[in-house]
Write a protein that binds this DNA or RNA. Structure first.
Lengths: 218, 218
DNA sequence: CCTACTGAACTTACGCCGTAAGGTTGTCAA
DNA sequence: TTGACAACCTTACGGCGTAAGTTCAGTAGG
């Protein structure tokens, strides 16, 4: 009676709240530590309440995909194509760094939602604008995508992570320098701080290669 | 008494049998459909028997990593470096095609077993033999690896797979050609039969790029 | 005011999962 | 014969996704 509006018991289960908390939870617990039950706890509701809003866990994951995709802008079309492509690549890479534990899921799922298709179409258009034909645009986009996927995954789920289940073998670690000299020599350049330089080298390789294709067929 | 040898009740739980059946099961059920219980059924034993041979499921997975890694040969050192590198890349790519459902796990785990280190050291040596310095070898290996990871993953877990949880939206599908012309034009080159050509284009881009680095500093 | 309906949230239950803890069996060396 | 040991089995626990059914506040129509 006193309240003219509903008291909204604690906090309503809005898509924004559910998906943001889910993303945060994944970054805390990892993608396999993430569960509907834990998310519900975090939200202050019971597990099954979430099924009122999403038909399944997979649908919730898809909604998170779209939310993260929203942070992936297309670079302004008035820049030179090489700069546009470099910016798009770095934007994608930034997604990996911003959501390291969600990224492996993100990068290996089709972007067949509307937001995903907008980005995909824009990226293909970028290659077309640069002067590549339809086939070249398709294949180059893919090749760039492979590199971006791998780079992001490596930094979030690959060598950069701790040892695999077979716990760090001290004997093996000490042996590396002796038996695997090339691995030992490469070690300093595999450190996290070196990632950006490696990423930029690979990106430059691909950009140079694309530029050569363009020059070969004027 | 009649038997001089042990009857071996049904079939012994050898590493080879366990790991081969595990890999086969993963290809049938996918990596998340794979469970210790199902593997035990397949092997004709009980779930917990497997824990006599591996301390945990993760250790079994690691053993499978090493088994698959055994199919990843280093190319003969007497070939030109570009050919060696191309062969190594194709060998890695073949792993993805041979174990499509295991590959996402394979490619995102550190190869810190002995077999993995041998391959890693050999690959880095390949770049060194080509004339790259330690830093270049490390970064180029990594950049190539990014591409190979992404290519394999895309073909085993990405766009090539069916729609994500949000089931194929017929309206959206029909709309694509109209609203996303670049996506529609690229469609034919995204088909499975086109993968190899796309892979080879990306590989050539990277090889060309590496070659240029080498020529710039003779 | 009553009623019927609706949507949000909750409850219970099922069959999976990995695995901790402990028990049983068969083989072989001493 | 005995005892150690490896190989394998049994039981049980807590967690998972989710199917099915229930509770309850708010509201529109009579």
């Amino acid at each position: 009676m006193a309240d003219t509006e509903a008291p909204t018991r604690a906090a309503p289960l809005t898509p924004d709240r559910m998906e943001s908390l889910a993303l945060a939870l994944i970054e805390e617990e990892g993608i396999e530590g993430f569960s509907i039950r834990k998310l519900a706890d975090r939200l202050g509701c019971k597990a099954m309440s979430l099924y009122h809003h999403y038909p399944s866990k997979a649908h919730l994951m898809d909604a998170m995909l779209d939310r993260v995709l929203a942070d992936l802008p297309l670079p302004p079309p008035d820049l030179p194509w090489r700069e546009r492509l470099a910016r798009a690549a770095r934007a994608f890479h930034r997604i990996a760094l911003a959501h390291p534990r969600f990224f492996p899921f993100f990068s290996t799922h089709r972007m067949n939602t509307r937001a995903g298709l907008i980005w995909l179409d824009g990226m293909l258009g970028l290659f077309r604008d640069a002067g590549f034909d339809e086939e070249q645009a398709a294949r180059l986009f893919r090749a760039f995508g492979y590199f971006l996927m791998g780079a992001g995954l490596d930094e979030t789920a690959g060598y950069s992570k701790g040892p695999s289940a077979t716990a760090a073998d001290a004997v093996l670690d000490a042996e590396v320098a002796r038996v695997f000299p090339n691995v030992a020599a490469a070690g300093p350049f595999f450190r996290p701080g070196e990632r950006e330089a490696t990423f930029e080298l690979g990106l430059a390789l691909l950009l140079d290669g694309a530029e050569q294709i363009l020059e070969a067929r004027p």
